[in-house]
Amino acid sequence: MIEVENLAKTFGVTRAVNGISFKVHDGEIYGLLGPNGSGKSTTMKILAGILKPTAGRVLVDGIDAGRDPLKVKEIVGYVPETPVLYESLTPVEFFNFIGSIRNIPAEKLEERVNRLVEAFELKGYLHKYIGSLSFGTKQKISLISALLHDPRVLIMDESMNGLDPKSARILRELLLEFKSEGRSIVFSTHVLQLAEMICDRVGVIYNGEIIAEGTVDELKEFAHEESLEDVFLKLTESKDEIYTVIQALKESL
């Protein structure tokens, strides 16, 4: 379970996250939606123990992420939006490195890696330098590396980016399996149909604040809209703006 209370984060004079609160229960997929620069990635990095909050509190399975980030990192699997990996290592070397740092028993590591490599069809890439692989393949490696320690909490920041349809489907099924096992998942995406499909609850973050929260149906009712995309555009004040921009583009092109 994740509990976020009055969380704030500032960088210099920029207030990236402005006193947000929400809860993610065990066995729940929580979608954090918002336009670019709204504070999603910052929030997710704080949940994963990577950044320290300026104010407020984050409890991940009862552990304070601000005070004990190392313990949080032990139970969290974090997938960033852009895979940051050691490009001069091979996936085999990289997974072994993570296994050693996370103290995963060799047998367990071997079993998990081989299972995930099989699922994401990475077998042919195991001994190639990561730097020579495609973006999508790197994203798969990043995903596998976040799952190796069997995390109780998963933080996924637009992690479907670059995945082929088959891998995206496998990941979706995997997330639903994790959910059924009682794990908490925080998920951000710009593909709103996907969010509509897998998220139990959704929080819309805008200018560092959560401006709406609830199930997809609750949000539709709240905004009087038919799709999550329309709800999102309405809440983030983008809907009217879009038509003006499109009109201007049509006239100028």
Binding site: V92, N96, F97, S100, L109, E110, N114, L126
Partner: peptide, 24 residues
């Protein structure tokens, strides 16, 4: 390029970091 399945090779944290540094 080598081929084959993944074989786990576990090292103490400090050594794993050092080995990674040398490879890089």
């Amino acid at each position: 390029v080598q081929k084959g399945a993944f074989k786990a090779r576990k090292l103490p944290k400090v050594l794993a970091l050092t080995l990674k540094d040398f490879k890089v």
